[in-house]
Design a protein around this nucleic acid. Structure first.
Lengths: 341, 341
DNA sequence: ATGAAAGCGCTAACAG
DNA sequence: CTGTTAGCGCTTTCAT
């Protein structure tokens, strides 16, 4: 009933009259094997339909050649470009990637970490969930010296490298741009301020205001938003009902920015004349909305590549020095949603 | 130097003065173990920080409890909902999911299949790449009786179940709707006609024309498009230059439809008055474009769930009868891009 | 209800 | 350059 029976290195060894050890070495290009025996081994393996048994190998070597990545959600353009970047690097270097979604939930993130741990990943890359509050759940990995890298939504942790953009500067750039277009009263739609990405952008916003001698008004910050479509709509409704409406909005992601703009337009508010809008991420959607959305370009693919390369380097050279933070370049992309002639 | 040393069932056995076999059984709730010893084992395991070694277990049991999924790309709303649906089902049933992207390339798909094979997945779910031409690369799995399920972009293969929507009917619905809005000259932007999803939609288009006694004009089909943003733009430019422009367009995905619409608008063409447009997928982008895009709702989450459930069922009950095709329900969503008063 | 023992397939230390 | 040997940690007959 069971499928034919697997071919093992023992079968190959028998056929070639060499030892299994030699076959094992030949198969993985060990330097101390003569060229011709190597060739004989490879040929026989191919002919016999040999498939190496990863479990046995992993068991023996005590590593999995697998890297885990935990992200809040897969369903954004940004995240899919990050993953694409990671896959590229990781596969080139002989590792496999396993992906898990925390669904923005701290609890699920804990489960994901444990699953990764049980899968014995050699290293882990994480962008934190919306409401993650501490990093105790990562300790189990760190105790085992499994390298951990944070990207995008990071947290400071000794011994872990973080890959980020300068969110404070980006927030500054966005806000400064609105100010340069004549906005005097700028509202910021922020995410959960426990997440670096959102608190830093808000800080940048404050810095820009300060630079222009505009007082900070907490009323003009909608914080702890999920930055979902619904959040954008809700924010717009709130804005529409304000006594003194803002003349500019800086939203911490494009999804919410676009939803907000649509709702504002429905209420007859003109973007950018009445209210100028800047988003964040440079999601393709930003070029679909009319008027096109000014936004901050977030180098997702590059972030994935850098995170993966950093991790793989650490795995391949465990004693290499490990940096604390790597900052990638962002860029303000000016489009019509914020441009006033 | 090496981390402390792993706790094994032998360690637990020693502490409790039982045999490793008993510990193994206790850990997995074997019926022939007394309640109290089971409890002692579980407690000790927890206290000692035991973590089961999946490699050893998999090696011994000759299965991985892992399911693979190969998709063309991760970066569409549709695919991320599919994956979310799969993850949910698969995790609930005690399996893990590993994802690989073929990047729409036949060659990479072959590599992915082999990687999955080497990872010894228990089953595989596949949506075919753009230019996949045959299924030889799956034979290696089928020979080993590893269940294979196709979804979305499928191919008929004896012994494999396919999960689809009725693309022909959907194409019919879309075209029929355009006709009902008074369109007489409808252009269809199709994908690679070797892929069921695109050829079926085109067939539906033809059926609708036939039903309305409109002759089929091959000039009005742009086929083998990648249905990318660029494809949409290119198609629009082509349309703009046509001597007799169409008055309706049915595009086989929303990305291309939206890009096409934008380009048409740039050329001063009014949608829907001059040209009515219908897309496919119900991507969130369809509600951002102005006017909102009429489209076909594609139940991604459900498709993921059904595919995964079908596969897991087959894995858990290998002798269960296996169906050929499962068809999910689609739905025409009428919005402004195709509505003429 | 529990234990003894064999072995899944591979790798690495050591020996030659 | 190649072989011997001893496990990696777990599951599963077969015994008791």
């Amino acid at each position: 009933m069971n499928p034919p029976k697997e071919i093992t290195i023992y079968d190959i060894a028998k056929v070639l009259n060499v030892s299994p050890a030699t076959v094992s070495r030949g198969l993985k290009d060990h330097p101390a094997i003569r060229k011709d025996t190597k060739k004989r081994i490879l040929d026989a393996a191919r002919k016999m339909g040999y498939q190496q048994n990863t479990f046995a190998s992993n068991l023996r070597r005590r590593r999995s050649n697998t890297i885990g990545v935990i992200i809040p959600r897969l369903n954004s353009y940004f995240m899919s470009t990050v993953i694409a970047g990671m896959e590229k690097v990781v596969n080139d270097r002989g590792y496999n990637l396993i992906i898990s979604q925390s669904q923005e939930s701290f609890k699920k993130e804990i489960v994901s970490v444990n699953t990764m741990y049980d899968s014995r990943v050699d290293g882990l890359m994480v962008s934190l969930a919306y409401d993650t509050e501490d990093t105790d759940h990562f300790e189990v990995l760190l105790k085992k010296k499994i390298p951990l890298i944070f990207f995008d939504r990071v947290i400071d942790h000794p011994g872990c490298t973080s890959i980020v953009i300068d969110n404070r500067q980006a927030g500054f750039d966005a806000t400064n741009h609105l100010l340069s277009q004549g906005c005097k009263r700028i509202l910021q739609i922020a995410g959960n301020l426990s997440r670096n990405v959102y608190s830093d952008r808000l800080e940048g916003y404050k810095l820009a205001l300060a630079k222009h001698n505009i007082g900070f008004d907490p009323e003009l910050v909608i914080s702890n938003s999920l930055l979902s479509e619904q959040s954008g709509v809700d924010a717009a409704l709130q804005i529409i009902n304000m006594q003194y409406r803002p003349d500019g909005i800086f939203v911490s992601n494009d999804t919410a920015a676009v939803a907000c703009m649509r709702q504002l337009k429905l209420a007859g508010i003109n973007v950018p004349q009445d209210i100028a809008v800047v988003g964040f991420n440079n999601d393709p959607i930003s070029k679909v909305i009319d008027p096109n959305l000014t936004t901050i370009n977030y180098p997702g693919h590059e972030m994935g590549e850098v995170a993966a390369a950093t991790l793989v380097n650490k795995l391949d050279q465990p004693n290499s020095p490990s940096v604390n933070t790597i900052v990638l370049r962002h860029e303000l992309i000016v489009r019509e949603s914020s441009t006033r002639k």
